[in-house]
């Protein structure tokens, strides 16, 4: 299904016919093969798929971290293809939040400084209480002056979420945010993300391979071989796991054939 857009979409994130090709010498890898998807406002979407399906690449393109080989990406109402590197960065720091799997924080800065970093760099004004409020919401009010080296993995992720929230972005992108955490801490982090959507009015797009994490989402998009193969609303963890297994089986069957 492909029809060109006439006007910019009202959703925070939209991709149209996005293709991404990686070249290594003579080898070309098709990471994304004509993906079109929209993420609605105030929604929590999980993107899943086996390794090599292109889910991380989808995230990078949607967030403006990579430029697609062809197709259009709309973020916060702007066509990313028309923006320069500088404009992209400005868009990212004011309208987008990020939570990566690891290495989220600048080790040299304290928790508070890490959280304030996007605002500082944007030379924006902020309400004096807001950053502390956000840190309190993620439950780290007593660790404000600590450095990342003094925090546990889960606490680091929570700081990353606080930083993602502080600029009141349009959309928060997460790349395997609970990948390195135990189930208890993972539940806390997912709870924070859920709360951000429900009460904070944010939009969250999360790439994950964990069916339990994906079950917190309103919608799950399944990717395989660079294309969207399924799009389900509010599935349970069991259904998700079964779907993923089927996708994985298809992939391995394809390899054997």
């Amino acid at each position: 299904m492909s029809h060109p857009l006439i006007a910019p979409p009202t959703v925070p994130v939209a991709l149209r016919e996005v293709r991404k090709l990686y070249r290594h010498g003579r080898i070309a890898v098709r990471a994304l093969d004509g993906v079109s998807v929209e993420f609605a406002r105030h929604s929590f979407t999980a993107v899943m798929g086996p390794s090599g399906s292109g889910k991380s690449t989808l995230l990078h393109c949607a967030a403006g971290l990579e430029r697609p080989s062809s197709g259009t990406v709309w973020l916060a109402g702007q066509d990313l293809g028309r923006l320069s590197e500088k404009q992209l960065t400005k868009l990212r720091r004011s309208r987008v939040g990020f939570v990566f799997q690891a290495f989220n924080l600048v080790p040299a800065l304290t928790v508070r400084e890490n959280v304030l970093l996007p605002l500082r760099l944007a030379h924006a004004r902020w309400d004096r209480q807001w950053p502390d409020e956000v840190i309190r919401r993620v439950g780290l009010a007593d660790r404000v002056r600590h450095r990342p080296a003094e925090l546990s993995g889960g606490q680091e992720q929570r700081v990353a979420i606080a930083r993602a929230l502080v600029a009141r972005p349009e959309v928060i992108f997460c790349d395997e945010p609970t990948g390195a955490l135990d189930s208890g801490t993972a539940a806390d982090v997912l709870g924070l993300l859920r709360e951000a959507v429900d009460t904070g009015g944010q939009t969250v797009v999360m790439v994950t391979h964990d069916p339990v994490a994906a079950s917190c989402a309103d919608r799950v998009v399944f990717l395989a071989d660079g294309a969207i193969v399924d799009d389900v609303a509010a599935p349970g963890a069991g259904a998700i796991a079964e779907r993923v297994a089927r996708l994985g089986g298809r992939a391995s069957r394809g390899a054997r054939a």
Binding site: E85, K86, T89, K90, R92, F98, F103, L117
Partner: peptide, 16 residues
């Protein structure tokens, strides 16, 4: 490399 890439990802323009 990685630290600078992080700064570039979340907030810092090339000029900064």
């Amino acid at each position: 490399h990685r630290d600078i890439a992080l700064l570039r990802a979340i907030a810092a323009t090339p000029r900064q």
